[in-house]
Design a binder for these strands. Structure first.
Length: 414
RNA sequence: CGGGCUGUAGCAUAAUGGUAGUGUUUGCGCUUUGGGAGCGCAUGGCCCGGGUUCGAUUCCCGGCAGCCCGACCA
């Protein structure tokens, strides 16, 4: 993409209504726009990052047998009354409204009920199970207090997968498979080193749920980390009894702030029973389906990546989620060669941002490039050409290297 | 939902009971091209409603919005 066609503008100053690093940097770089508290639009750069994250999640969910679908945002109040999750006392984050005929509807904040209800049409026998369905869809939560930029919003994209299994053993197997897939996702987006599987409060069905917590001062959660065992315990369940049960020792644990980037839950029959989601076993006996739920907030994950990948100049995207893999910056005397390089790289299907803008000082282009944070910067200028090619620098390094133009293409084609 | 703070131009800010200054952005001209360049000109603003006052952007009340702390957060 030519930067002259990128309509978004960068800002030198942090917006006064943001204090979180993720919101400040993403706003300054032109990735997002705040519409109101806790509600953000994604601009072209931010949308590209979001799509990268989305595709990584999709690949890993497909790899463990997930079937992608898309449920509706509008939810029928009657359905949620059957599981006792419509009443304001039970759930205080519903955004509710009414149809023209007076029928009560809500904007979905999760999808257990509608997913389980849907499955009643498709699950009859043990032969139909297991099933793993997932979607990447917008959720609405009327948070009393939205905060921390993309970390706690009122409208956000979520990947939610639901497992439908015959028994606890089958659930357990998938649960662990999904936990492994989650770590793979966090590995691929560049935060695995700081992300811990964390014991957290469970529901009626299991004592614990598992959260995936990324260490960051910006995090809302407090966890206790055993860095050797690569495991953590959420403060909400941090008791002597629990530590004993998990075989952890207080002296091995360090208190840390962390961002909850994922959460997996065993739900058992909490929803299948009230909704009547049953299957017949080998003997023809009706049994409730065993369920599990597995969520990742995409915006929050993006925020976690930014919170853990930045410096005083801006964002430092991991290549896997960067809006572009390379940023060609043309200075005077290098315009023609920069354009040719850009065209060749695009012909090789490389995602490149090309700063073709004239009338901008080199300093301004460089400052913007650092703020946007594309991993590889390629400067083509009179000076670099004289030195033998383009000046290549990685965003997270101070080292620069002069590389002949033809080698740049070879090096980048995988 | 309880408590606190804050609303001034596209953005960031200053001052002020007598209608507002700076930086940046934007437009034009000249100049300039390796770290948000320089000079000049121009454009552009007091959240909304009520009260006090001769006069309110300023003080008071209410609303709305935003941020922070807490509570909440399958």
């Amino acid at each position: 993409m030519r930067q002259s066609k990128l309509f978004t503008k960068t800002r030198k100053e942090a917006p006064k209504d943001e204090t979180s690093k993720n919101a400040i940097l993403l706003t300054r770089g032109g990735f997002i726009n705040k519409e109101m508290a806790g509600v953000y639009s994604y601009l072209p750069l931010g949308f590209k990052v979001l799509q990268k994250i989305e595709n990584i999640i999709r690949e890993e969910m497909n790899a463990i047998g997930g079937a992608e679908l898309l449920l509706t945002t509008l939810q029928d109040a009657e359905l949620w009354k059957t599981s006792d999750r419509w009443d304001d006392k039970a759930v205080d984050i519903w955004l509710k409204t009414k149809l023209a005929n007076g029928k009560e509807v809500g904007l979905a904040w999760t999808h257990e009920e509608s997913m389980a209800n849907l499955m009643k049409h498709h699950i009859d026998s043990y032969k139909d199970l297991p099933i793993y369905t997932y979607q990447i869809q917008t959720k609405f939560r009327n948070e009393l207090r939205a905060k921390s930029g993309l970390m706690r919003g009122r409208e956000f994209l979520m990947k939610d997968l639901y497992s439908f299994t015959k028994n606890e053993k089958e659930l357990e197997e998938f649960y662990e498979k999904c936990a492994a897939a989650y770590m793979k996702i966090f590995e691929r987006v560049g935060i695995a080193g700081k992300t811990y599987r964390t014991f957290a409060a469970g529901g009626s069905f299991s004592k614990f749920s598992d959260e995936f917590q990324t260490l960051s001062e910006a995090g809302e959660d407090t966890i206790y980390v055993d860095t050797k065992k690569k495991i953590a315990v959420n403060k909400e369940v941090y008791t002597d009894d629990v530590l004993k049960e998990l075989g952890l020792k207080k002296e091995d644990l360090r208190e840390e702030k962390a961002i909850e980037v994922g959460n997996i839950f065993k739900q058992g029959t909490r929803f299948s029973e009230p909704l009547g989601l049953m299957y017949k076993d080998e003997k023809g006996i009706k049994k409730p389906v065993i369920m599990g739920a597995y969520g990742i907030g995409l915006g929050r994950l993006m925020a976690a990546i930014v919170e853990t990948h930045n410096d005083e100049k801006g964002i430092m995207w991991p290549e896997s989620v960067a809006p572009f893999v390379a940023h060609i910056v043309a200075f005077s005397g290098g315009e023609k060669e920069a354009r040719e390089l850009y065209e060749k790289m695009v012909a090789q299907n490389l995602e490149v941002l090309y700063d073709d803008r004239r009338d901008l000082s080199p300093g301004e282009k460089l400052a913007e490039a650092d703020l946007i944070g594309i991993p590889k910067r390629i400067i083509v200028s009179e000076k670099s050409l004289k030195a033998g090619g383009a000046e290549v620098k990685m965003r997270d390094s101070e080292k620069t290297e002069i590389v002949p133009l033809k080698d740049i293409i070879l090096k980048n084609v995988k």
